[in-house]
Design a binder for these strands. Sequence first.
DNA 1: ATAGTTATTGCAATCGATTGCATTTTGGTT
DNA 2: AACCAAAATGCAATCGATTGCAATAACTAT
Lengths: 355, 355
Amino acid sequence: MGIKYLTDGHRGMANVKMSDIASLAGVSESTVSRALCDNPLINEATRTRIKKIAEENGYVLDLRARNLRLQKTGTISVVFPLLHEVDSGISDPFFLEMLGHLADELAERHYDLLLHKIGPGEPRGLIDLVNERRSDGVLVIGQSTQNAVINELATRYEPLVVWGAALPDQHYLTVGSDNYNGAVTAVQHLVGLGHRRIAFFGDKTLPEIGQRYAGYVAAIEQAGIAPNPALECRVPFDRLGARKAMNGFLDQHIAFDAVFAASDLVAIAAINVFDQRGIKVPVDVAMVGFDDIMLAAAYTPALTTVRQDIGQGAKAMVEALFSRLNGTQAASTILPTSLVIRASCGAKMLQNKSA
Amino acid sequence: MGIKYLTDGHRGMANVKMSDIASLAGVSESTVSRALCDNPLINEATRTRIKKIAEENGYVLDLRARNLRLQKTGTISVVFPLLHEVDSGISDPFFLEMLGHLADELAERHYDLLLHKIGPGEPRGLIDLVNERRSDGVLVIGQSTQNAVINELATRYEPLVVWGAALPDQHYLTVGSDNYNGAVTAVQHLVGLGHRRIAFFGDKTLPEIGQRYAGYVAAIEQAGIAPNPALECRVPFDRLGARKAMNGFLDQHIAFDAVFAASDLVAIAAINVFDQRGIKVPVDVAMVGFDDIMLAAAYTPALTTVRQDIGQGAKAMVEALFSRLNGTQAASTILPTSLVIRASCGAKMLQNKSA
DNA sequence: ATAGTTATTGCAATCGATTGCATTTTGGTT
DNA sequence: AACCAAAATGCAATCGATTGCAATAACTAT
């Protein structure tokens, strides 16, 4: 006699299934199924024997079959604004960092991560995705301008969590940073350095940016400075549009001594445009960004910015989603931010003023 | 009488299945199945009738069931070096751009994209992924140091395509840029500008970087310059390590007038470190990068770099993978690169020389 | 009308797992 | 030895689609 093995074919990967293991072990499929998931109904001895056989024959269960039977997918969709067209997109490193953390959190729960890109012109994408029921839940990173679509969807689809700003009439769970207070802190910092004419760079029609703008205004006013609409530069997301907007702003020759940029990417682009026109950061103008992407620290000059804790954010999103899946109540979360001070807004201005 | 509808429950999403449509239409499931996939066996009239009923009742087929039956998954795994730990990782924007393009290519072919993060310390991850057969094929972005594992896997698993350098004893298909010639062009450009003491910044133990290094050496020698090992700075991937390596290089006070950085990220970090020590790019030192990530153009100074066509790369990878899935032969691909000249290595040096 | 085609449709098995219930085996008790 | 409870295992239905083959309906030509 001797131990029987299933020979795996030429392709190397034998298509071993549960019934094969069952016959090898001389038991029924039910027993194998139960043994493999440590069901206590099965005798300790048989259980280990079966497991050993399964192991030796390289058995792995077929998730399609299991999920079909269990009526689930074992998958979470992550919807992502992946914009990469030359003229319409900047791959924000912030998203990649978020994605990495989400991948971790989901892997820990043994869920797969199905990635869906969604472009600016395809609002149906999200709806279809849900209709096809390929996943047990959906995480949306960045509602940007789609919040109407998302909101409509949310009224009939529960397991949906969105990264971004919490808005008033919102039916869906959000996890996001405290944009308002983050902005307040940033602007207060600039004020503390002696800056008075602080420009706002960003597109405040986007929900998150709108909140940052509100914080900017509040901090300005609180410092006793009159908000000046001329100091606002509406910077779109695409690179060319951004440069154009910034150059247009500079062409107006409005005096300003600092910029609060709505994201690090905007800040970086601004520094670049300024540089080309001979304006040096931080010597001539102080600059604060938002996000603290990895590159913020590596930029020249290193960027002072409002840090969002992406790891926490990812964790909160996944937790909220699984609460919904389990029927537990869960509330939207607003995560605290912190100001990271680097070279892009040195203390020089303060010294100038006091001198 | 009147048309019958399946009422969808409170949750909004009715769980309509094919058998429901069958009874509504008064036909068998087989007929519905065939009608929905435009099988010509089915009468034109019934086909449209069934489709209409399916549409009205919001029917969508269950992919698990279909895939189980068809013995496939409809999914491609994308394995991704998502490193985000503070001390071990930089999220290279290059990867996100690639990911976006892959998402497009796969979506076009109606395949889902399953994302798997793989950390530096988990070589088994890739193997397990394949064993679990959750996807019909695997795309690996960046072999980095894992090529031994990948190679072993490739001997028994066919539908595998890797982004990266083509290496001698490789059993797997690769798609990658022409690292060698890209580097040659970059260095020739520096030479043409009059630079003689060109440093190499990067970790040449990684396959892709190794090829770029080879190109660097070749171009140097071809210009009649003796390669100087002291001009090589081995820059690791983590930020702190990178800074340390660069500072160490500067501490040796070896004269150099230009840097060929193995990636844009390295170039960016280098400019930053140089700046902190009073070395200005491009005034004091010229800098060329590799990749042409979005940020290269937005950096200050804008980065001269070797552009990789990521869109083409993604396309080639997916095409190669599907060839394998269809049993067609496919060969590894090497994509051409192009040099993008920007501010980081201006023509100043040349003028200095000729003056 | 009738046999012979051809165009449609249905039956039933199948993909690979899970699980309620029935059944067998084992062990303990008197 | 007989019986009962408890432990271990097996049977068979099920998840929702696809498809070879059989069966029926609709025509065509004689």
